[in-house]
Nucleic acid binder design. Structure first.
Length: 207
DNA sequence: CGGAAGATCCACT
DNA sequence: GTGGATCTTCCGA
């Protein structure tokens, strides 16, 4: 397929905190009927399954919504939130473990025009409007629950690498929107490319 | 079976 | 910076 090489299942079958920073600088490829949409990942968060109070799988919870979290690494976990948004996770680790990485923000590489149409903005777009947030990212790629449990190693939605290594510096911080999670709210499981303009919210960049 | 909350986003002040 | 939208999902009774 040339420029964008799909990552193998082996890549995903490791703990989320290990996979998460390695997803930065890699790509989400979404094939539509007549067009390929490509985003470059610039911000993610790791969720540590049963041992993480912020995870949907806290204390081993198994529900109808979260069952794909327990699949072998390399599939999508897509859930619906706040009555109107979807969030896309990359499931990691082995079967029975519920680790996952939330894709929070990405930079448009190809198909920005179509992504802008998907976003249905009323105002003129500013940087970060296309995919600078987990809900925006899903809307831009037209992702919904139909992708829940689907493989990211083949098919219409894939995680790939491009050419060369990731040149940027990675910074970490606490995760967003999980104040209820007690001690886990402080864990530095949010990862981003330092200073990147498409990040959803500022991090304390180290200088 | 009902109530409450939620890994968010947008418009408005 | 604040509040409202909007509805699925979950948990307790």
């Amino acid at each position: 397929m040339g420029r964008f090489r799909t990552l193998s299942a082996r890549f995903f079958r490791r703990p989320a905190e290990e996979v998460a920073p390695e997803l930065l600088g890699r790509f989400v490829v979404r094939d539509l009927e007549e067009e390929r949409l490509v985003l470059r990942i610039v911000e993610v968060e790791a969720y540590l399954g049963a041992r993480d109070r912020a995870s949907h799988a806290w204390q081993g919870r198994r529900t109808g919504r979260n069952k794909s979290l327990y699949e072998d690494g390399g599939v999508a976990y897509v859930y619906f939130i706040y009555g109107m948004h979807y969030c896309l996770n990359v499931v990691t680790g082995r079967s029975g473990n519920a680790d996952a990485v939330l894709l929070r923000a990405a930079e448009p590489i190809a198909g920005a025009g179509t992504m802008l149409e998907h976003r249905r903005l009323s105002r003129s777009p500013r940087p970060g409007d296309l995919a600078g947030g987990p809900g925006k990212l899903c809307q831009a790629l037209n992702i919904d629950r139909d992708f829940d449990g689907s493989p990211l190693t083949r098919g219409a939605l894939r995680i790939t690498e491009g050419e060369g290594a990731t040149p940027e510096v990675i910074v970490t911080g606490p995760r967003i929107g999980i104040a209820y999670a007690g001690e886990a709210a402080d864990w530095p499981l949010r990862f981003a490319i330092r200073g990147h303009r498409h990040v959803s919210r500022p991090l304390p960049w180290s200088k």
